[in-house]
Write a protein that binds this DNA or RNA. Structure first.
Lengths: 392, 392
DNA sequence: TCCACTTTGGCAACGCTGTTGCGAAAGTGC
DNA sequence: GCACTTTCGCAACAGCGTTGCCAAAGTGGA
C-alpha cells in the first residue's frame, strides 16, 4: 500500500489571488470527487458507471482513477450488482482502514480525543478532565498524550481499553475549541475566561510536537463539518445551520457543503444576535442578545420560551441565508430535546405558512452524535479535503 | 475577430452531483481567470508575468492563454512598462468593445435598460415608465423594445440619443426585479402586489422572443453583483452585504466574491429579520421586523433612529457571516446618505470596540452608481461568468 | 561604441490529463 | 448453442500546462 494522497502535484497559487489550475489540480480534484462518492456510498459500494454518471466524467476516466485508488489501497472491489441483461457492474468501496485522523475536542473543563478511520467511524477514544487555565505547557502535553494514546503510539505507555487494535500513524490532527480564533493561521484569540491564551499559535506548537499536520477550528464549526459529512445530512451542496446551546450559544454554518468561516473565522456568532432592541444587557455589551434571553429563560425553567426565542433567531438566520435545515445541539438542548425542537419548529413553520409556502418549511432536528460530535468533526477537518469537501 | 468564448468544450456534469473536471473545464477556468485579471487591471493593463504571479500559472501558460485571447480579439497589447534592467514587460489590456451585455431593471413603476461593454461601462441607456400590473404581454413587449433600442437593432426604429454608435449583438440579457423568484429556473413567484405574475417563466419567455440567453435575478442580488465586480470593492474573494432601503428593505449578499442566493433564491431576506420580540406587527405576519421599525422611524422623520435600527440588524448580519463591509443604497438612504452611514457605522463600531478589536470595525459606505446600480448589475449576470466570477 | 548582463517571451518537445475506438469478458434470453 | 447486451480495459489520440532552450530587447559599464 502506497502513501495516502500523493495527489498534490499541482503547484497551487502563489499570491493571494484566485487559483489557476493545472493538471495536478485537475487530477486531485477528480480523485477527491470519486473518493467522496465512494465514502458516501458506504458499505453498499458504488459501481464505476454510477461514479461516471454522478461526476460527469467518462467511464474510462473513472476506470483510470479507481485503478489508481485500488493500487494505493484506498479502494477495493466489493462484489457485483445484479445483471440487467449484460455483464454485471463491479461494485467498488472505500477501504476505511487505509487512513486515520485524530480529532481533539478541547473544552473548558474536558479533553476528548478520538481516532477515526477514512469512513469517519470512531476507532479509539480517550476522555479526561482538563483545566484550560492550567497553562500552555500542561494543556499541550495533555493533548499530545491523548493523541499518542488513541493512535496506539508505544511511547504512550500501556494501551488501555478503547485503543486501536494496533498502532496507526494518523495523517493529521484536528483541534476544536470554543474561543474566537484564526482558523487560517491556527492562532487563538482571547479565549473567553482565559486571557493567557490570547495570540497563542496552537497549530504550530502542536504540529511541531506531534510531527503531523494540525488544523485548528471553532468547536461549532467542527461539529457542523462533522454533520455535513455525516451522510444523512444531504451530502454535498447542502446548506444548514448547527445551533449549539450550552454554556453559551453559537452556530456553525454549512453553505453549499462547506463550512462558512468568514475571512477572520468570525462567522457563526449567533448568540449575540440582537432580537430585542434595548433588551437586557448581555456580558458582550449589547442589549437584547438571543443568548441572554434564551439562557435566562432556560435558567428560569421556561423551556418553551427559551425555544421560542431560539426559534426567532433561527428564523432570522434561515431567511437571511435560505438554508435547508436547522440542527440543534449542546448540553442545554440535550436536557429537553423535544421541547426545543418543537419550539423552534413552530416558529419556522409559522413563518413558512405566512409566506404562503408551507411545504417549504425548514426542518428542525436534534443533531446526532451528541457529546462526541465536536471531536468527530475535528477529525473531519483533515479528512474532508481528501474527499473534495475542503475550503469551498 | 472570432466569437466570444468558444471555451465551453467541457461536457459538464450530467446529474445533480458535483462537477468532475476535464481539460475543457480546466482551460475555460484559467481563461476566465486571466480575463478577470485583465478587466480588473482596467486601462492601465497588466503584464504577462504579473498574470502568471497572480494566477499561479507558469509564464508560458499565460503566454498561450493571452495569445488565444488576442487572436479572438478579447485582449490587445497596450504599450510596455519601464525596464528593470532587461527587456521591458509588454502590457496587455482587455478590449472592452469585443462584447456587450444588456441589463434590465424591471421595477414596479419603471423600466431601465442599459447596454454595457465587457468592462462593465454603460454604452447606451433607456428609461421609461412601466406598470408591472399591465399584464405579461405589455411588459414583455416593453422589455424587448428596450433591449432592441439599446442594442441599436434596426427593428427598433429610429436610433434616438443615448444609443450605441452602431448596432451590436449582445451575448445575453440580465433581468433584475423585486419579487421572490427562482434564479435557477428563471420563474417568478408571487411578486408583491402583482399576484398575476406568480409562476410566470420570465426567463424562457424573454429568451424565446429575443433569441439570446436570459438570466433572471432579484434586484438586490443584481446590485450586489454589480458592486462586487465594480473593482473598488476588493476584487475576488471579498464578502459584503448590500442593504437596500427603499419601499422595502432587502439585502444582497456577496460571499467570497460571488452572490449567495441559497437553494431557492431566497437568501437576503433582511427586512423581515426580527429585532424586537413581540414588537409591532409587520405585513409579513411577524412582529418586530427591522423593515417595519426602520421604515416607520424614517416616515416619522427620525432618521437617526431608523439608522440605529438598521445598524443593529446589520450588526447581526456582520456577526453571523463575518463579512468585510456594508454598503447602503436605495431611495430612502439616498435621501439622507450621511445620516444613515453615520448611524449604522456607530452601531458597528461600538460592537467592534466591545469585542476588543476596534481596528476590525466593519466599514460602512454608500453604494456607488445610485439609480443605475441594479441595471448595471443585471448586465453583470451575463458578464461575470466570463470572468470567473460565476456561480461560486 | 562595444560587450556583458538581465529580463521577456516564443518555439518545440514533453508528460500527463481525460477522450475515443475497439475488442475481450461476462452475463441474459431465446 | 447462438445472438444480444452491458461492462470495462487496452491502445491511440487531442489538448492542457510544463520544461528546456534561444531570440529579442532592453540596461549599464568599459
Amino acid at each position: 500500500m502506497k502513501r495516502v494522497s500523493e495527489t498534490t502535484t499541482g503547484t497551487g497559487p502563489r499570491g493571494g489571488g484566485s487559483a489557476g489550475a493545472n493538471l495536478g489540480v485537475l487530477r486531485s480534484h477528480n480523485t477527491a470527487l470519486v473518493l467522496g462518492l465512494l465514502r458516501d456510498a458506504g458499505a453498499e459500494g458504488i459501481s464505476r458507471l454510477e461514479l461516471a454518471e454522478r461526476t460527469g466524467l467518462t467511464p474510462q476516466a473513472v476506470s483510470k482513477i479507481t485503478a489508481r485508488l485500488r493500487e494505493e489501497g484506498l479502494a477495493a472491489e466489493a462484489g457485483r450488482r445484479a445483471s440487467t441483461g449484460g455483464k454485471p457492474r463491479t461494485v467498488l468501496r472505500l477501504v476505511p482502514e487505509a487512513g486515520h485522523a485524530v480529532g481533539v475536542h478541547l473544552d473548558r473543563d474536558e479533553l476528548r480525543v478520538v481516532l477515526v478511520d477514512l469512513d469517519g467511524a470512531v476507532v479509539a477514544e480517550r476522555c479526561a478532565a482538563l483545566d484550560l487555565g492550567a497553562g500552555a505547557e500542561a494543556v499541550l502535553e495533555a493533548v499530545c498524550a491523548g493523541v499518542r494514546e488513541v493512535a496506539g503510539d508505544p511511547r504512550a505507555g500501556a494501551p488501555g481499553e478503547g485503543g486501536p487494535a494496533r498502532a496507526v500513524s494518523p495523517l493529521g490532527v484536528g483541534v476544536a475549541l470554543p474561543g474566537p480564533l484564526d482558523h487560517a493561521r491556527g492562532v487563538l484569540h482571547r479565549v473567553t475566561g482565559f486571557p493567557e491564551w490570547d495570540g497563542f499559535p496552537l497549530r504550530d506548537a502542536l504540529a511541531e510536537r506531534l510531527g503531523v499536520p494540525v488544523v485548528v477550528d471553532k468547536d461549532t464549526n467542527a461539529a457542523a463539518l462533522g454533520l455535513a459529512v455525516g451522510g444523512e445530512e444531504g451530502g454535498a451542496g447542502g446548506s444548514f445551520a448547527y445551533l449549539h446551546l450550552g454554556t453559551g450559544l453559537g452556530a456553525g454554518l454549512v453553505i453549499g457543503g462547506s463550512v462558512h468561516r468568514g475571512a477572520r473565522t468570525g462567522a457563526g456568532e449567533f448568540g449575540h444576535q440582537v432580537v430585542q432592541l434595548d433588551g437586557p444587557l448581555c456580558e458582550c455589551g449589547n442589549r437584547g442578545c438571543v443568548e441572554v434571553l434564551c439562557l435566562r429563560a432556560a435558567a428560569r425553567g421556561e423551556v418553551a420560551e427559551a425555544a421560542r426565542v431560539l426559534g426567532v433567531a433561527a428564523g432570522n438566520l434561515v431567511g437571511l441565508l435560505d438554508i435547508d435545515r436547522v440542527l440543534l445541539g449542546g448540553r442545554t438542548v440535550a436536557g429537553a430535546p423535544e421541547a426545543y425542537v418543537r419550539g423552534v419548529r413552530e416558529v419556522l413553520d409559522a413563518r413558512a405558512h405566512r409566506e404562503g409556502a408551507p411545504e417549504a418549511a425548514v426542518p428542525v432536528r436534534v443533531a446526532p452524535r451528541g457529546e462526541r460530535a465536536v471531536a468527530e468533526g475535528a477529525a473531519q477537518l483533515l479528512l474532508a479535503p481528501l474527499f473534495g469537501r475542503g475550503e469551498g
